[in-house]
């Protein structure tokens, strides 16, 4: 039944143009970040690491949070239209699975975006002519942890969109969240604040930082946030009157 729900979620998004944005958006920082890297090559001497910061700095703080906000708002808004909540909540399956299936859809889009960001990063590095070998393992870790941090953000945004019925307000909150993420990261709380976790996981401002604290605390915090949000949202959906 759960797979059928996932399939239904996928069908709801079929022919929707929003995936185009997730394809187009990473091209902008990849191109402009590379140009910026070439312009400041004398200061940015850590090769792949420097290029990675140029590619991901603004993406993590401003644009991916907003993109995730739009995506989550869109997924929830689908149910607000045409009183779809009535149909969804009367389906013969556990209500707690509704939120999880939506979260998995958002997560898959974040994962694809991360992989695309990683691919563009490698292509840019090759075009620029970086001589050191491609740090494949680190790219995979950055993208994987970025996805995990993004999932935390998506679960919170989905929860917000569950409460706030209009489309635009959760997106404004996502921007506020992204900015607060930057602030918390600067104050040293990047590893616990939900809106900082993606930037922290992607190591967008200090590629070596996460290795000092290890992977486990990061993983645990992300999982706790996701479980808390899913449990709370499931409870709300369960109690919701159709």
């Amino acid at each position: 039944m759960f797979f059928k729900m996932l399939k239904a979620e996928r069908m709801k998004l079929k022919r929707s143009p929003i995936w185009i944005a997730f394809v187009l958006m990473p091209i902008v920082p990849a191109f402009l970040g590379t140009v910026n890297y070439l312009g400041n090559i004398e200061i940015l001497q850590s090769e792949w690491y420097s290029l990675w910061t140029q590619h991901t700095l603004f993406t993590c703080y401003f644009f991916l949070p907003i993109m995730i906000g739009i995506y989550c708002s869109y997924i929830m808004h689908e149910e607000e239209n045409n009183r779809n909540w009535n149909k969804v909540l009367t389906m013969p399956q556990g209500r707690n699975m509704i939120f999880i299936s939506k979260l998995i859809m958002a997560g898959s889009m974040i994962l694809l975006s991360e992989l695309w960001i990683g691919a563009l990063f490698v292509i840019s590095g090759k075009i620029v002519g970086l001589t050191s070998p491609v740090p494949w393992d680190k790219i995979l870790i950055w993208c994987g942890f970025g996805t995990l941090g993004g999932l935390v953000m998506a679960s919170i945004q989905l929860l917000i969109s569950l409460f706030i019925k209009n489309f635009a307000l959760p997106i404004a909150i996502a921007l506020g969240g992204g900015l607060s993420g930057l602030m918390f990261l600067a104050k040293g709380f990047g590893h616990i604040w939900p809106y900082s976790l993606m930037a922290y996981g992607m190591n967008s401002n200090a590629p070596q930082k996460i290795y000092e604290s290890g992977y486990l605390p990061f993983l645990v915090i992300c999982v706790i946030y996701i479980i808390l949000c899913s449990a709370f949202a499931s409870l709300i959906i369960k109690k919701r009157d159709i």
């Binding site: 929707s16 143009p17 929003i18 185009i20 944005a21 187009l24 958006m25 902008v28 644009f63 907003i66 993109m67 739009i70 995506y71 708002s73 869109y74 489309f167 635009a168 997106i171």
Partner: peptide, 9 residues
């Protein structure tokens, strides 16, 4: 979402 994505890019 179209207006938002265009604006964000």
């Amino acid at each position: 979402a179209i207006a938002f994505f265009t604006g964000i890019i």
